[in-house]
């Protein structure tokens, strides 16, 4: 599983709270539903048998409701919470096996984290908050302030370097959080519901900001959220968690087109399909009664974006992938998706 091609590779990760966590993993009890497991053994499985690979430069979103284990999962990846078993391989190094000293070194240089409640140090200026990881790593004041000023520029905090966190708005505080995570130039960034505590409008700004930063810097990100629209907006791939386990993993389109179970379907119900699905998913063979119009449309076009062209065509439009026609759609097909609207 852990080829060099992935930035981070998680294999069979378990996190069990309770009196005898080691005994649960691999036993018959492990497959019990969470409530039954607790009743029977007194243990709670917060993360159960989670495996995934994140490619370099990918934004991987973990999504789930509160209590689904997503926050525990992300803390296990950096060992803020010790997992019960499994491996997390970062650049070929299994961080479950490294010494405390090496773990600190990794935290100071290789990965960084952004928190829901910001976690800023109120007694330090913005610039010293941002430079904190460099400071604990023994970087000289001059160098770390120079670096901090770079990222201050990057996240748009110019003029606030010498302010204190309590003097900033929530959105600005989380910019400090982002800057702090970027300061060490990490290989992987973990973002634990970074925008959940913000107002909707500011949240949207910050999402755009993350997209921009990702485009500029190309950092690998593991992004935790409970908000599906945020997941769809940011994620290259999305893992949906429930009761500590991953129930489905894939691109936004895969999740919406083929929900693995009723739980995932329930999640995706409110998402307008036409905003996510491509025309590929509704392409079909030409019926006997139809004749092609001769117009074509690329298979990866989002349905919403194809609407005008298809309605305009007044007949079946060929869906083309790699130069081949993979099927046809016409206005009725589009209207079915759009008209089905938010419904199934």
């Amino acid at each position: 599983m852990s080829e060099v091609s992935s930035a981070i590779s998680v294999n069979n990760l378990w996190q069990v709270f309770g009196p005898n966590p080691e005994k649960i993993v691999g036993s018959a009890d492990a497959s019990l539903p969470r409530a039954e497991l607790r009743e029977k053994t007194g243990n709670t499985a917060a993360v159960r048998d989670v495996s995934f690979d994140v490619a370099p430069g990918e934004v991987f979103v973990v999504m789930g409701l509160s209590g689904s284990g997503k926050s525990t999962l992300v803390r296990c990846l950096t060992r803020l919470i010790e997992p019960t078993s499994g491996s997390v391989v970062l650049n070929g190094e299994d961080i479950m096996k490294v010494s405390d000293a090496r773990l600190r070194e990794l935290r100071r240089t290789k990965f960084s984290m952004v928190f829901q409640n910001f976690g800023l140090l109120p007694h330090r200026k913005v610039i010293d908050n941002i430079a904190f990881a460099l400071e604990v790593n023994g970087v000289s004041k001059e160098k770390r302030h120079a670096r901090a000023n770079e990222v201050i520029e990057l996240v748009g905090l110019q003029g606030f370097a010498y302010a204190y966190p309590e003097q900033l708005s929530g959105g600005m505080q989380q910019r400090v959080g982002l800057a702090r995570a970027l300061a060490v130039n990490p290989d992987v960034m973990f973002l634990d519901e970074p925008f959940s505590a913000l107002d909707p409008l500011i949240r949207r700004d910050m999402q755009t900001e993350v997209i921009r930063l990702h485009e500029e810097l190309g950092k690998t990100m593991v992004f935790i959220t409970h908000d599906l629209s945020e997941a769809l907006k940011l994620g290259d791939r999305i893992a949906i968690m429930r009761d500590g386990a991953v129930v489905q993993m894939g691109t936004a389109e895969e999740l919406i087109a083929n929900p693995a179970d009723a739980y995932v379907e329930d999640f995706t119900r409110d998402i307008p399909k036409s905003h996510v699905l491509t025309v590929r998913t509704i392409a079909r063979p030409l019926a006997d009664t139809e004749t092609a119009t001769g117009r074509t449309i690329p298979a990866e076009t989002i349905i919403r974006d194809a609407t005008a062209a298809v309605l305009d065509a007044n007949g079946p439009v060929a869906v083309v992938a790699n130069g081949n026609v993979i099927g046809y759609i016409k206005s009725r097909d589009i209207l079915q998706v759009v008209g089905g609207g938010t419904e199934a």
Binding site: E105, H123, F132, V136
Partner: peptide, 25 residues
């Protein structure tokens, strides 16, 4: 907890955590 957790995630030693975070706060 959140500043403490954030500081640990940035690789503080126990001593650094005490001196730079817990005592001042």
């Amino acid at each position: 907890t959140s500043p403490v957790e954030a500081s640990i995630s940035m690789g503080t030693t126990k001593r650094q955590l005490l001196q730079k975070v817990q005592l001042p706060m």
